[in-house]
């Protein structure tokens, strides 16, 4: 039953990633089309534009949420693939703990940097 909920969470985070990453992709890559529609993305990869977004609580929240959704969705998917390839219970346990530890570390680091930039 636990696995059913973990799988359901992957479906839900999948939809949330599609929405949040969709916003990120459109903002970063469709700046020409956005400016034709009257929305100024302000050269999204430039330092000034990046800092401007970093100081905006809405963007910072969006990025941190995206990070959490992506990490869960991707690492759970990776765990599924690895579980198909190895049968040993010990290795599976090591995979679970390794992935969990990596996910927590990546989330901590990926949250620390935008929070520092937000309050600086």
């Amino acid at each position: 039953m636990k696995n059913a909920y973990l799988w359901l969470a992957q479906l839900v985070t999948g939809i949330l990633v599609a929405v949040t990453l969709g916003i990120h992709m459109v903002w970063m890559h469709l700046d020409n089309i956005l400016s034709a529609l009257g929305i100024d993305a302000n050269e999204p990869t430039s330092w000034s534009s990046m800092i401007q977004r970093s100081r905006d609580i809405v963007w910072a929240t969006l990025y941190i949420a995206l990070l959490a959704f992506v990490l869960y969705h991707a690492l759970y998917g990776l765990r599924n693939i690895l579980f198909e390839l190895v049968q040993s219970r010990g290795i599976r346990r090591a995979v679970t703990w390794g992935i969990l530890a990596f996910g927590i570390l990546a989330f901590a680091w990926g949250t620390y940097v935008p929070v520092i930039l937000l309050i600086k």
Binding site: L67, V70, I81, G110, V113
Partner: peptide, 23 residues
């Protein structure tokens, strides 16, 4: 699966670039 693993690989590099070079 292939696209999922590819995006994961990109994401890890992307996370490093956008955090280590951002200060």
């Amino acid at each position: 699966r292939v696209t999922g693993l590819g995006i994961l690989l990109f994401f890890l590099v992307h996370l490093c670039v956008t955090t280590f070079f951002r200060m």
